[in-house]
């Protein structure tokens, strides 16, 4: 299979206007990725699938990753696609696409019309991260129940207050328990009362 720089060049030629970057992995892994912007990910994916040099007809894995904002980088939710070719027995080509973390702007185009294997995996990424896939035939929750309102795999998710508290609840879990009136063991309730009286 061609080197990643060559793939980037060819893709940039075929899909005009696409902003493609190479993201390197660890030196041992040898699995660099192509970061494509949201507007052109569908065209790049289609090109990789249909071009006779690549024929990437097997989309193996779709993952969502949550990157919290740091000093030098803004936060984002990244969706990673791993593509393989069953006819030419080559791969993987890794495609990444990023979306902002705020829920209203967190959407990317869906690649399900190209590879049907993305159908359930994109639904899972929506369920756990909240990233919407435009063009997905049936985008709804898959692993959690429909009435669930949070996106649990995000890094800033606070779990519900029902951990059996060894040790006692603290920080966010305690705040939420106090607000929602979750179950508290008698000793924790007594302590809270004592703290309030002071």
């Amino acid at each position: 299979m061609e080197a990643i720089e060559k793939i980037k060049e060819i893709a940039a030629q075929v899909v005009p206007g696409a902003k493609i970057e190479i993201i390197n992995s660890t030196p041992a892994a040898q699995q660099p990725a192509l970061l494509v912007d949201r507007e052109h990910i569908y065209a790049v994916g289609k090109f990789l699938k249909e071009d006779p040099r690549f024929q990437m007809d097997f989309c193996s894995c779709v993952t969502g990753v949550d990157y919290l904002p740091k000093a030098d980088k803004p936060g984002c939710i990244e969706v990673v696609y791993h593509l393989y070719s069953t006819t030419q027995k080559q791969g993987p080509i890794v495609l990444k696409v990023r979306a902002p973390r705020e829920l209203e702007q967190c959407h990317v185009p869906s690649l399900t019309p190209l590879w049907r294997s993305c159908e359930f995996q994109e639904r899972e990424a929506y369920d756990l991260y909240g990233v919407k896939f435009n063009g997905h035939p049936d985008l709804r929750r898959i692993l959690m129940w429909d009435e669930f309102t949070d996106f649990p795999m995000r890094k800033d998710y606070t779990p519900p207050a029902d951990y059996e508290w060894e040790p006692t609840p603290h920080d966010d879990t305690l705040d939420r328990a106090v607000q929602e009136g979750g179950i508290m063991p008698p000793t924790a309730r007594e302590e809270l009362e004592r703290a309030k009286k002071k």
């Binding site: 129940w145 429909d146 009435e147 669930f148 309102t149 949070d150 519900p160 207050a161 029902d162 059996e164 508290w165 060894e166 040790p167 006692t168 929602e180 979750g182 179950i183 508290m184 063991p185 008698p186 000793t187 924790a188």
Partner: peptide, 23 residues
């Protein structure tokens, strides 16, 4: 099914949260 958790989180007639023995 509630928004964050099951409603109610437990059936208090059947189960009581354990006393924290470290106290």
């Amino acid at each position: 099914y509630g928004g964050h958790d099951l409603q109610p989180p437990a059936n208090l007639e059947v189960w009581q949260p354990p006393r924290n023995y470290r106290d």
